[in-house]
Simulated assay, not measured.
Amino acid sequence: MTEFEKMTRGESFNAIDLDLRLRREATRLACAKFNSHPSKGNLRHVTRLFAAFDSVVIEPGFQCDYGSQIHLGKNVFINFQCVFLDSAPIHIGDDVLIGPAVHLYTVDHPRDADLRASGECSAKSIKIGNKVWIGGGAKILPGIEIGDNAIIAANAVVTRNVADNERYFG
């Protein structure tokens, strides 16, 4: 089984595997085309990577690892300088506003230094409900679920699940 297959199955994987590095490089190039010349035509370089999307506005500065595990609903707005590390699925609902410099991290690293040095990683999915507003600079950690209508404060580090209609200040 390849490291990519392990990763997409939710198993531990080696992030320094050549195939995974080449996939991330190809994704960086697609993002770079859009980020250097933001246009609808260049946005296609990014959105064609996604597992699913309906209608999305992405401002320049967007980065992701693979794109293939990003699922976007209708009317999603992603502001400037956002980073989506999608080693596990990222599901974003409808009518979601994502502020500038928001980071979504699905990947995690071992606490053991030797395992970490070997490239071993794990990843947990992030799920964001409908009509969520995530303030600028927020960081969403692996495995987090954010309920419908929730508001995440600017610069919050989200370390636990957030309920429907909750305001999370971190």
Rank of each mutant, 00 (worst) to 15 (best):
F84S: 03
F84W: 07
A88C: 10
H91N: 13
D94R: 10
D95G: 01
D95H: 14
I98T: 03
G99A: 06
P100Y: 08
A101L: 08
A101R: 15
V102H: 03
Y105W: 14
Y105Q: 11
V107L: 11
V107S: 11
V107Q: 12
V107E: 12
D108L: 10
H109Q: 12
H109Y: 13
P110V: 08
P110G: 13
R111M: 12
D112Y: 00
D114K: 15
D114C: 03
R116H: 10
A117N: 14
A117T: 02
S118N: 09
G119W: 02
G119Y: 01
G119K: 07
E120K: 14
S122V: 09
S122N: 12
A123C: 07
A123T: 08
K127S: 13
I128W: 02
G129Q: 07
G129S: 12
N130K: 14
K131D: 15
K131M: 07
V132Y: 09
V132W: 08
W133R: 11
I134Y: 03
I134F: 05
G135S: 09
I140R: 10
L141E: 11
G143D: 13
G147P: 06
I151N: 00
I152G: 06
A153I: 02
A153T: 06
A154C: 09
T159Q: 12
R160D: 12
V162T: 05
